[in-house]
Simulated scan of single mutants.
Amino acid sequence: MGQGAAAIPQIPNSLLPRRSTIIFLGLLVIGVVCASKDETPPPTTSIATRGAASRICLSNQSSALLQFKQSLVNIGPRWLSSWQHNGSDCCHWEGVTCNNLTGFVIALEIHDLFLPDIYYPSLFYPKGIAIDSSLFKLRYLQRLDLSYNLLNGAIPKRLVELTHLTHLNLSHCGFSGQIPVELSQMTRLVSLDLSYNDGLLLQHPNFSQLFRGLVHLEHLRLDRVDVSMSLRDVSMSLSSSHDLQTFSLSGCNISGPMDESLLHFQSISYLDLGSNKLESSIVEGLCSLGDITSLRLRASFMTGAIPPCLFSLPCLKELDLGGNHLNSGIPNLQLSQIDSSLTELDLSGNRLTGSIPSSLFNLSFLATLDLSHNLLTENIPSSHFNLPFLKK
């Protein structure tokens, strides 16, 4: 060895067996852990992938997806083009998410697939289709979004077979008839959207029977579903859903009056009860909902005064009280309310009287303001159109 070369330390032979033993045991442990993961179903919160999966999609999953695509006879030619019988990994297909440990499909999100009106004149618009049974072979689905698709008939009872489902969106699909009682067994649901299926109704079961056990709900949208129940009974049916954040039931044939039963939704951020027949004043208790960002009570036969405390809600961005019978003046905002984060204010179509308080124009984030069709004694002065975000 030359003089400039560094000496390489020699490993004593007595240590070599120990190191090889440790390496062997380490590999054995890793092998056992990986084997045990392959033999168990996907956990509720799964490791998912849309890209480089460590394991390709299972053949029974890809065949179920292809069968489901074949049932969608009215979809546009460019939709689901990646879904092919060419041996490609279905975990890379459009709208599909897999568990990368097991290969099971855990999310199917394929919305708005059908051809627009330019392909189908109104006289020849295609009829909707029923959900194909192949969907229920994807038994580890956690998220299912088929919204804005041309479906029809009743919501299938077999959805209850998807026992891992936490998010279900069937909005704007054309479903009709009774919502099946089987949905009450889907107790893992966190988000449910059945809105804007104009023929849906809740009678047998009614709202209480369907939702009393869905205690994990955080987001509920049933707009245009015929509920035909009082607001108090609806609210009390969800009293165990302590984490409810979205509560959207506009146009649901809900009757009033509005009362304090709404106030146990202390986590609520979006509340829409518009186009119902509440026939009451706005309860000041709503001002205790400190996390609310959007409050919509449009065309709900609300009467009386606007509670000034609504403008003190720290997170409120959208306030829509239009189309009611409110008959007071517009509240004069206090200095502490001027820092409000309000961006949209609609008080149109009421019976509001008096002058427009100048303090209203100190709401610096206001982008949309509608005070039309009231009994106010003056128009909005042009000098007030200097709010930086106000749409002119």
Rank of each mutant, 00 (worst) to 15 (best):
L238R: 01
P314H: 04
D339N: 15
C309M: 02
I8P: 05
G103L: 01
F124T: 13
D193G: 09
A64D: 04
V32C: 12
L244D: 02
Q334N: 12
N74A: 10
S359G: 09
I110P: 01
V190L: 15
L295R: 09
N149G: 02
G323V: 06
F389Y: 13
R188T: 07
N152C: 02
N324M: 02
C91L: 00
V160G: 03
F311N: 01
Y148V: 04
M236R: 13
Q61K: 14
L141G: 01
L263K: 10
L238H: 00
L286D: 08
M302P: 00
Q67C: 07
D38E: 12
S294L: 10
C57G: 07
C287H: 05
S71A: 13
S122V: 13
D223L: 09
G251Q: 12
I179S: 11
P156H: 09
D112R: 10
S328I: 05
S147F: 08
F104M: 00
P116T: 07
L202Y: 04
S240M: 12
H167P: 00
S81E: 11
C34S: 14
F68A: 01
D346L: 07
D117M: 05
S81Y: 08
D112W: 03
S294W: 05
T45D: 13
P77G: 10
F385W: 13
D370I: 07
D193A: 10
R158P: 03
P17M: 11
G354D: 09
H384R: 07
H85K: 13
E344L: 12
V105F: 01
T102I: 00
N60H: 15
P257H: 14
E378Y: 01
W93Y: 00
T246C: 09
T377W: 10
Q209R: 11
A5L: 14
P43L: 04
G95H: 03
L165A: 02
L249H: 13
N350P: 06
G354S: 12
A299H: 11
H384F: 13
F311I: 00
S300R: 03
G128I: 05
S241A: 15
C287N: 02
I22P: 06
M229I: 10
H219P: 01
F389C: 06
N100Y: 12
K277F: 10
I254Y: 11
D243S: 14
G290K: 15
L162Y: 09
T166K: 07
S228R: 11
A64V: 06
R158K: 12
L335Q: 15
N276E: 03
Y196T: 08
F104D: 07
K392G: 07
S122D: 12
L162N: 05
G87P: 00
L360T: 07
I254G: 06
G51N: 12
F389R: 11
F385S: 11
L202T: 04
I155Y: 05
L146F: 14
Q178L: 05
Q266D: 15
I30Q: 07
Q84F: 01
A130H: 14
G103I: 00
